[in-house]
Computed example of a mutant assay.
Amino acid sequence: MRWAILYARSRQLPAAFAALLVATFGLWFLGRDSWGTLLVVLTLAAGIAVAAIGLSGQDPDLDRTAARPWPVRRFAHLTLIGVATGALVLGVQHLGTPIVDLSIIVRDAAGLAGLAGLAATAAGGQFGWTLPLAWCAIAPFVPDDDSTGARITAWMLQPPATTAATWTAAVLALTGAATYAAWGGRR
């Protein structure tokens, strides 16, 4: 199990987990009286953003020459970010009265984790936070009409039964996980 400890330390997982806890509980504390979908999305995006900073190690050449295959570790790391963030948000929301539907949290956590994987692959692990936060910053300002484009652009704020939002999150999650697992963070 020594490799798991070394991997966790090289990816700053203890610091990322601490930052994830602070971001999740801090945002819940600030918005506990008005907890709703927008705050859940903001909390998920912030949590995934702080955890995604460790999606690449300090030495990309060392990562590429490891004796054990990296795709499984990369996929597990990205999945762990999405699951841990979603579970924390799900747990934190039970501290107050208003509850956001579980399917929204799962859908948004998966899609945002996929965005982090895409950003890490395109720009490097240290920039894994950019796409989740950028999309989260744009989504609330999309006009609230019933067009497919608006539903896709604001997928994280849509109700649970919105097909366009579910497909958008699924495509982002699968594409992000596949590209990050195959190629890892850019140099």
Score class of each variant (00 low, 15 high):
Met1Val: 08
Arg2Trp: 08
Trp3Pro: 09
Ala4Ile: 09
Ala4His: 03
Leu6Val: 13
Tyr7His: 11
Ala8Lys: 10
Arg9Gln: 14
Pro14Ile: 02
Pro14Leu: 04
Ala18Ser: 00
Ala18Cys: 03
Leu20Trp: 08
Ala23Asp: 15
Gly26Pro: 11
Leu27Asp: 00
Arg32Val: 12
Arg32Glu: 15
Val41Ser: 00
Val41Met: 03
Thr43Ile: 13
Ala52Glu: 07
Ile53Phe: 04
Leu55Ser: 01
Pro60Cys: 06
Arg64Cys: 02
Arg68Trp: 10
Ala76Ser: 11
His77Leu: 11
Gly86Trp: 05
His94Ala: 11
Leu95Tyr: 12
Gly96Val: 01
Leu102Asp: 15
Leu102Gln: 13
Ser103His: 06
Ile104Trp: 07
Ala109Arg: 03
Leu115Pro: 01
Leu118Glu: 02
Ala120Trp: 02
Ala123Lys: 00
Ala123Trp: 07
Gln126Gly: 12
Phe127Ser: 07
Leu133Glu: 02
Trp135Asn: 05
Cys136Gly: 07
Ala137Phe: 13
Val142Met: 03
Asp146Glu: 12
Asp146Gly: 13
Ser147Glu: 11
Ser147Thr: 14
Gly149Val: 12
Arg151Lys: 13
Leu157Cys: 07
Gln158His: 00
Gln158Ser: 05
Pro159Gly: 01
Pro160Lys: 08
Thr162Ile: 09
Thr163Ile: 14
Ala169Phe: 06
Ala169Asp: 07
Ala170His: 10
Val171Lys: 11
Val171Gln: 09
Leu172Pro: 10
Ala173Met: 09
Ala173Ile: 13
Gly176Gln: 08
Ala182Lys: 03
